[in-house]
Simulated scan of single mutants.
Amino acid sequence: MSIYVGNLDYSVTSEDLSEVFAEYGTVKRVHLPTDRETGRLRGFGFVEMGTEDEEASAISELNGAEWMGRELKVNQARPREDRPKSGGGRRNNRF
């Protein structure tokens, strides 16, 4: 299971997020996606913890909590949906 953490400040680091979640158990991994073109953080991240009980505790305690001036959105991450492949950059493909 993985935890989705939304509404993050754009200056947050993996270490910052790890410290917050470590209060609820062992943090195995933190991932902060960045925008492909700008390299800027996208304002959300994912945290994996040692056990499902630790993750449930972190979700329960941190969802809606204020951190770095923002109200966190914390819940169980959903699997990534398969996206259709692009048409090679062409628009309005007509056949």
Rank of each mutant, 00 (worst) to 15 (best):
K85V: 14
G64Q: 06
D53A: 14
V30S: 06
N7V: 03
L8W: 01
D9E: 14
S14D: 14
A65F: 05
K28H: 10
E55A: 15
S2R: 14
G39M: 07
S14H: 08
L8Q: 05
T13P: 04
R36P: 01
L8M: 03
Y10R: 14
N92I: 07
D53Y: 03
F21P: 01
D35K: 04
V47S: 09
L62G: 01
R42S: 07
G87N: 15
N75C: 12
D16Y: 10
Q76H: 13
A56G: 03
D16F: 09
L41G: 13
T13V: 10
G39Q: 09
Y4R: 09
K73C: 02
E52Y: 08
H31C: 13
P84Y: 09
R78P: 00
E52D: 13
E55M: 13
R42N: 04
E55C: 11
A56P: 02
R78Y: 03
E81W: 00
G87C: 09
T51Y: 05
N7D: 08
V30G: 05
L41D: 08
A77T: 03
G39V: 10
V27A: 05
D16P: 08
T51S: 15
K85M: 08
Q76D: 00
S11C: 01
N7K: 07
K28C: 11
M49Y: 06
Y24G: 01
A77Q: 05
E71H: 08
A22P: 00
Y4F: 15
G6V: 02
D9R: 02
N7M: 01
E15S: 13
S57C: 06
R94D: 10
N7G: 00
F95S: 14
P33I: 11
S57E: 12
S57T: 14
L72C: 02
F46T: 06
E54A: 03
R78W: 01
G45S: 12
L62F: 02
V5E: 00
A65Q: 11
E19C: 02
E23D: 11
A56I: 03
S18P: 00
R83W: 06
R80P: 00
G50F: 06
G88N: 09
K85N: 11
L32F: 06
L17C: 02
V20Q: 01
G45Y: 12
E37Q: 14
R91N: 05
I59S: 04
G45Q: 12
L41F: 10
G89Y: 03
R36Q: 11
I3F: 00
S57K: 13
T51I: 08
R36K: 15
T26K: 15
G88E: 09
I59R: 06
S2Q: 13
G39A: 10
I59F: 00
E81L: 12
D82A: 15
G39D: 10
V74K: 07
A22K: 05
A58R: 04
I3E: 01
S86I: 06
F44A: 09
K73D: 12
Y4C: 04
R29M: 11
V20I: 14
L8A: 06
T13M: 05
A56C: 04
P84W: 12
N75V: 00
L62M: 13
F46C: 06
D82N: 14
D16G: 07
E54C: 04
E81K: 15
R42W: 03
A56R: 15
S11M: 05
A77C: 09
G39F: 08
R29P: 00
L17S: 03
G64M: 06
I3V: 14
A77K: 11
